[in-house]
């Protein structure tokens, strides 16, 4: 009897370590990253689910007329942001009122969208799927379309041991893929791990960053993911009041979620409405362009003073946040829908 329970325990241990190892393979942030916000226990990572999420992410079947995929506005080559356009565009060439944010390190985010309208990664995809200017569909329509596909039926049964397609399965698979998009291999990270060193200029820029920027763009994620008014004058063609639209709290007027500074060369243009095309414009905004208003961030009450040389140094440091390995990592890129997904891996 004792032997038997020992045996079962042993098997359980092996199985558990296997499961742990599997998750580890897909989600393995460096030691200096904080504890994720996402509760992995509710949706434990699994290679079949991640694969399914990845295929869905790149499939325009999620949109009403099969033209727009998640990747249309969140391209892997732009750190999953939408470059070149100040405001992003979706179905039927509709233009939305904000610049699509970059997607990475989502496991650490408390809320989603520039205004935090979405409170959980698992419900996030419902917003673009249903938005009339993004994908113009709805989740019931998506379920219907996916259910007609033999390939998807197969993938869902591989992933969930059941081929019935539901909102929950679609959304959890999408979350799984997005959770694996972790950016943690920029020069900054390699310096942090002692593998490389900063140049003198980068070092000086790092000091300036820590003094002037780090209270909102907190290391190592380079955002505290809070809502702040960073002194941008209101664009009268948009009248976007940010977080206020969600809470209707006067104190939230003009506040937007602090974006991460990682991968910033890949994610231009900058700000919620993509008003700045270059990093120089962004830095100049903080030194010369802040518009004071009631809700201005307390961190911006004192002016940021930087000489021309200091600006150059600061930008040199910011460029060490570009994670080229992440941006060109094949395991996040387009994957075609096909039944033999396992063999094609």
């Amino acid at each position: 009897m004792k032997q038997k329970s020992l045996f079962i325990f042993g098997i359980a241990f092996v199985l558990m370590s296997f499961i742990f190892k599997q998750g580890f393979e897909w989600f393995n942030p460096p030691y200096y990253f904080p504890k994720p916000v996402y509760d992995f226990k509710q949706n434990s990572l699994d290679s079949n689910k991640i694969d399914l999420g990845r295929i869905l992410f790149y499939d325009p079947i999620l949109s009403k007329n099969n033209t727009i995929s998640c990747a249309s506005c969140h391209s892997p080559y732009n750190a999953f942001a939408h470059t070149d356009h100040d405001l992003s565009h979706g179905i039927f060439d509709s233009i939305v009122n904000r610049n699509a944010p970059a997607l990475f390190n989502l496991a650490w985010q408390k809320s989603f969208m520039w205004d935090g309208a979405i409170n959980h990664l698992d419900v996030q995809a419902l917003a673009p799927i249903s938005h009339s200017s993004e994908m113009g569909s709805d989740i019931s329509e998506v379920i219907k379309k996916l259910s007609l596909s033999k390939e998807y039926k197969h993938l869902f049964s591989e992933a969930f041991k059941d081929s019935t397609i539901t909102s929950s399965k679609i959304l959890k698979a999408l979350s799984q893929f997005q959770l694996t998009i972790v950016s943690a291999n920029a020069k900054y990270d390699r310096v942090k791990l002692g593998k490389e060193t900063f140049t003198e200029q980068e070092k000086n820029g790092y000091n300036l960053f820590q003094i002037n920027c780090a209270s909102c763009h907190t290391e190592p994620l380079f955002s505290n993911y809070n809502f702040e008014n960073n002194g941008l004058p209101i664009d009268p063609t948009l009248n976007d009041l940010g977080r206020y639209a969600i809470t209707q709290n006067e104190n939230d007027k003009r506040k937007f979620k602090v974006p991460s500074l990682r991968n910033l060369s890949y994610t231009y243009p900058y700000m919620h409405d993509g008003r700045f095309m270059t990093l120089n414009e962004v830095v100049n905004h903080y030194t010369n362009g802040i518009e004071k208003s009631k809700t201005i961030s307390t961190h911006l009450e004192k002016p940021i003073l930087l000489s021309a040389n200091e600006k150059v140094d600061l930008i040199a440091f910011l460029l060490t946040l570009n994670d080229k390995d992440f941006v060109f990592d094949k395991k996040h890129q387009f994957k075609k829908l096909s039944v033999q997904t396992k063999e094609n891996k």
Binding site: H120, V123, I139, S167, K172
Partner: peptide, 9 residues
Amino acid sequence: GIFEGDLDP
């Protein structure tokens, strides 16, 4: 997050 059944979106 997301739920099934009566709470399904």
